[in-house]
Amino acid sequence: MTSPESPTTPGLGADDAAAVAAQLGRPPRAVRAVAHRCPCGLPSVVQTAPRLEDGTPFPTLYYLTCSRLAARLGTLEAEGRMREMTERLAQDPELAAAYQRAHEAYLAERDAIDSLGTNVSAGGMPGRVKCLHVHAAHALAAGPGVNPFGDEALAEVGEWWAAGPCVTCTHPTP
């Protein structure tokens, strides 16, 4: 059963809005929809509007919300995985081409909603790898085979959901 949209978070039902707020530790901004759900049933990625409510450009189309997955990806980042991935871009033309296609797909999806008039996508695409959270969110939302570094990071963190939901939340039912 789908809950009605939350009056404070357009694009999300009340249950999803409460879960995302608990995951992030703050109310979400400019959310359009849940883009991926964790196997536990909670949102793990939301699609955001290309502009915040006040009109400020927000180029991150897919935003990772699962706090457990975010923590695991943060560990990979701290281990220097982004630097290793960026180095591989310069050495592997096929990987660089796949990453370029991911960048172009990201821009096309975002621009179909609202063009920001820029070729800046997210996560350092297409020249470097800057944020594994963005790449994992893109890979989860778009599916396997679209973002090579998102797919790689997700494979490395494994079954982040196996321990159960990352948050428990309740909210008053209207």
Rank of each mutant, 00 (worst) to 15 (best):
G124T: 08
A30V: 07
A19Q: 15
T60R: 07
P50H: 04
S3I: 06
R101E: 08
G164L: 11
H135D: 03
H133R: 10
D54Q: 06
A142F: 11
P148N: 05
V157G: 01
Q91A: 15
A22F: 06
G74F: 02
T168K: 12
Y99P: 01
P27S: 14
L42M: 12
L12Q: 02
P7R: 13
E79C: 05
G11W: 07
L42P: 07
M125D: 01
D111E: 11
E79L: 12
L132W: 02
T86F: 05
A102W: 10
R81I: 10
G164W: 13
A14I: 15
T60A: 09
Q23W: 07
R81T: 14
Y99D: 02
A98G: 05
A14W: 10
L107V: 05
G143T: 12
A153E: 00
R72L: 15
T168Q: 14
Y62I: 06
E5F: 14
F58N: 12
A70K: 07
P39A: 14
G25R: 02
T2V: 12
E152P: 03
G143V: 11
Q47K: 05
E156V: 11
Y106D: 00
Y99G: 01
L42K: 09
S3A: 13
A108E: 15
Q47L: 08
G11Y: 08
R128Q: 14
H133L: 10
V45T: 04
H36S: 15
G117I: 07
R26D: 00
I113E: 08
V34W: 00
G150P: 02
A112R: 12
E87Q: 14
T65C: 08
V146G: 01
V45Y: 06
S121E: 05
I113C: 01
M82I: 09
G127E: 14
L73Y: 01
A33L: 06
T75N: 03
V146E: 03
A71P: 00
P4S: 12
A78K: 07
F149P: 00
V46M: 04
D151Y: 04
D151G: 03
E156A: 15
N147H: 14
Y62R: 02
E87D: 15
D92T: 02
T65V: 15
A90H: 09
T9M: 08
V134W: 04
V134A: 15
R37E: 05
G123R: 01
